[in-house]
Every structure is written in C-alpha cells, then in structure tokens.
Amino acid sequence: MRWKWQQLEEKIVQLFMLLSFALILFCLLLILYTIVAKGLPSLSWAMISQTPKGGFYLGKEGGILNAIIGSLYLALGGTLIALLFAFPLALLLNIYLSQSLWADLVRLSLDILWGIPSIVYGAFGFTVMIFLGWRASLLGGILTLALLEFPIMARAMDEVIRRLPPDLPRAAYALGSTNLETAFFVVTRQILPGLATAALLAFGRGIGDAASVLFTAGYTDRIPNSLFSPAASLPLAVFFQLGTPFPEVQQRAYSAALILTIIVLGISLSSRWLAHYLDRFSIH
C-alpha cells in the first residue's frame, strides 16, 4: 500500500511541476500572441515612415518615426557611453585585481547598481539635470540610459572574461607582453563574441526602458536634431497613446508595442546568433 502512496505523490508532484512550467511557457506565448494579434492590423508603412501630423493624438494622420528614431538614438548613445566605461572596467578588473577584496567590492557595487530600479535612475538623472540647468533632452536621456546599462554590461563582460581559459593570458605573458598589451590584444580577440552579446543585452534593456527616459529625454513629435532637443521613445509612445481615450490612437499604441517587441526580440535573437557565429573563431 505504501508504495502506491509514494508513487502517487511522485506523480502528483511531477504533474504540478509540468503544469507550472507549461504555465510560464503559456504566458510567454500569450504575450507574444496578444501583441502580434492586436498590433498587426494597424501596423502600416505610414506608422514607421512618418512623424505625427496635426491631430495625430486625436486619431489623424501620421506615424511614430519620431519615437523609433528617438529610441534608436537614445539606446545607441547610451550603449556607446556605457561601453566606454564598462569594457575597460571589466577587462582591467580581471587583469589587475582578479581575485582581490577590492575586486569583490567593485563586483558587489555593480550588482547593486544592476538591481536599482530604472525609475530611481530616472529620478537621479532628473535631479542632476536640474542641478546643471538642463532641460529634458536627448543627451539627458542618453546619459541616464548609460547609467542604467553600465552595470549590466560591465557585469556581463566580467563574466565573459572570467570564463577565459587562464592559460591564454599566461601564454601572452610568456611572450613578454605587458599586462596592458595582454589585455587589449590577446584577451579582447578571444572574448569578442561574449562582448558583443553583453553589449546587445544592454542595448536591448536600454531601448525597452521607459521609466528612466520619462523624466530625462522628454517627448516630442519631431525627430531630434541636436543633443539638446528632447527626444521621443518607443516605450513612451506606447504609454502615452494607450492613455488617450480614442480607440484609433490606442490601436497605434498596440502597433508601437509590436514594433518595440520586434526590435527587442530581434536583438535578443541576433545576439544569440552572433555569439554562436563568432564563437567559431575563438579557442576552446
């Protein structure tokens, strides 16, 4: 009899596990399905090739090119600036202080920064901008996004570099390279796929984030023509259009969400592919 109960318990638990797993997969599929089904009907060439015309937010002509371009500017700028700090930090962290207590503290700080909510970055960025007398602008948005992306990128790159076979730097040292030369010429080449993945990961996070650019980049119907003019972004385009009472405008929020999803998932998939593709050139 007791065998029956134990086996029954095993089966019940397995069933619950399978159901939980299926539920998570179901949610993923449901989200993708909802966004595609709702966004596709009003997705048109005009949506992605025009800026909002007069009366756009009442349901008239126009598109969200301002938000697409704005988001690309913001995320690209943020990623480049984050890269400028994250890459040297991750590299030198491993070359100069790989296992020290100080390195532990740096990593802890990065992990903590990673966990800070983006709305807090937004509030912080806004505070600094007021202090400097800036208005909501492309530059403000870029810098705030750079703050948000920096820990993600630095930590991801750090992990990539740490997984490097220890023999490789040693071989370079044996050839008489200095630390710095080892870092930039030998190590970099080996970890290129990992670096690209890390940068794309941060870019994806940046382009999808709304809370940090809400205060700092502002919103405008024009395509920004200078670093100091405000910039629209896709997440905010979704948010604002969904907030209007007009069904036509809400429709466009759905298709803006679809465009955003396509971009982000495209980045996620291509980083996976890129890592796989470039990986062939490194030593295992």
């Binding site: 998570i24 949610c27 993923l28 449901l30 989200i31 909802t34 966004i35 709702k38 994806g204 382009i207 999808g208 984030d209 709304a210 809370a211 997440p235 905010l236 979704v238 948010f239 969904l242 929020a253 759905y254 969400a257 955003l260 999803t261 982000v264 998932l265 980045i267 996620s268």
Partner: peptide, 12 residues
C-alpha cells in the same frame, strides 16, 4: 521572457 520590455507587459 526576460527581454520583453516592461511597457509591453503593461499593454498585455
């Protein structure tokens, strides 16, 4: 699932 932007979750 982790890559989907917050605002898209909101729309959903």
């Amino acid at each position: 699932l982790a890559a989907i932007p917050s605002v898209v979750y909101g729309v959903w």
